[in-house]
Amino acid sequence: MQVQGRYDASVFLTEQMTRTQGMRLKRLSEEAYQPAQYARDLSFSEAARRIQVLEAEIDLANSF
């Protein structure tokens, strides 16, 4: 995000995840049989991290 013309990474640490992130995270957590990975109150950055981890786990499982 831009704050007065400058990038402010701390905004991403506290900003709530987007609706799109929430829907994707819920679907991925169910697909990976890890429903505990989904929570409604995650930050934007934590949701992005969990999505990335779940996608990697699913890709690894599909490679066998």
Rank of each mutant, 00 (worst) to 15 (best):
45 S>R: 02
53 V>Y: 09
46 E>W: 02
57 E>D: 13
11 V>S: 08
23 M>I: 14
12 F>K: 09
43 S>F: 02
38 Y>E: 09
57 E>N: 11
56 A>M: 11
43 S>V: 04
24 R>V: 00
46 E>Y: 07
27 R>E: 10
3 V>I: 03
36 A>E: 14
60 L>S: 09
13 L>I: 08
28 L>Q: 03
1 M>G: 02
9 A>H: 05
60 L>Q: 11
33 Y>R: 15
31 E>I: 13
47 A>W: 04
43 S>A: 13
10 S>G: 00
54 L>T: 04
12 F>T: 01
19 R>I: 12
39 A>S: 15
24 R>E: 06
14 T>P: 02
16 Q>F: 10
34 Q>Y: 10
21 Q>V: 05
30 E>A: 12
62 N>G: 08
64 F>G: 12
18 T>F: 02
47 A>G: 01
52 Q>H: 02
6 R>Y: 02
27 R>L: 13
47 A>Q: 05
62 N>S: 15
33 Y>T: 12
32 A>S: 13
61 A>K: 14
17 M>I: 06
44 F>M: 09
22 G>M: 11
7 Y>E: 08
19 R>Q: 08
38 Y>V: 03
53 V>I: 14
60 L>A: 13
7 Y>P: 03
28 L>F: 09
28 L>N: 08
57 E>K: 07
13 L>W: 11
59 D>W: 00
44 F>I: 00
54 L>C: 08
54 L>R: 08
20 T>N: 09
52 Q>K: 08
63 S>Q: 04
37 Q>A: 14
31 E>D: 03
39 A>W: 08
12 F>M: 04
